[in-house]
């Protein structure tokens, strides 16, 4: 048994080149890679942090951004506790793609968790806020509000701005949700690593009710 109390799965999605991998690497390893090759399929990283004296482990799945990879990456949505949808504040095009991503989230993540009475935590992130922007802050805030995101933040993986804060807030929300649903008693989240929902019905969604 490892020494953490909660294990949460976070999946990053969004267009190619918006900085998903850089965000994860800044958070998990404290580095900003000068050149980060395209993610092919999915990549995986882990980072633990303390929330209210409790150790929380975040399992972070980083996905390929190109549209055609969605058939591979969507299977990761369903077991996620949190989906971070990333766009690039410097790229209107990446912002314009958000509605399609939202439809994907609703289709592949929404239904799966609804049975548990708890939706996946939806987070919108505008990355590269160190650059000149094409997407105004208030437009993005409005979008996040209209589309029922639980959290919106602008980040800079390059300058380490808001990156730690982003993941910390996510961890805090997930912990407090988990505590609520357990009537205040904390229990270890039991999470299957399998993504094969159909063959293994006992998956992590049960962790909120155990």
């Amino acid at each position: 048994m490892e020494d953490y109390k909660y294990l949460f799965k976070i999946v990053l999605i969004g267009n190619a080149g918006v900085g998903k991998t850089c965000l994860v690497r800044r958070f998990a390893q404290g580095v900003f890679p000068n050149v980060q090759g395209a993610t092919i399929g999915v990549d995986f990283m882990i980072k633990s942090l303390m929330v209210n004296d409790v150790k929380v482990k975040l399992q972070i799945w980083d996905t390929a951004g190109q549209e055609r990879f969605r058939s591979i990456t969507q299977s990761y949505y369903r077991s996620a506790h949190c989906l971070i949808l990333v766009y690039d504040v410097f790229s209107q095009c990446s912002f314009d793609s958000l509605p399609q991503w939202c439809r994907d989230i609703d289709q592949y993540a929404g239904a799966a968790i609804a049975g548990n009475g708890r939706n996946v935590l939806k987070v919108l992130v505008g990355n590269k806020c160190d650059k000149d922007r094409e997407v105004p802050l208030h437009i993005a805030e409005q979008f996040a509000h209209n589309n029922n995101f639980d959290l919106f933040m602008e980040t800079s993986a390059l300058e380490a701005e808001n990156v730690e804060k982003l993941f910390r807030e996510i961890a805090e929300i997930l912990v407090s949700r988990n505590q609520e649903s357990n009537g205040g008693t904390m229990s270890r989240s039991i999470t299957s690593n399998s993504f094969n929902q159909s063959s293994k019905p006992s998956n992590c969604f049960n962790c909120f009710s155990n």
Partner: peptide
């Protein structure tokens, strides 16, 4: 037993012929 499936590590083996 650990829940590790090929799609978690082998996409780029096939799609890039190990070149990435």
């Amino acid at each position: 037993a650990s829940g590790i499936e090929a799609h978690m590590y082998a996409s780029q083996w096939f799609l890039t012929l190990f070149s990435a």
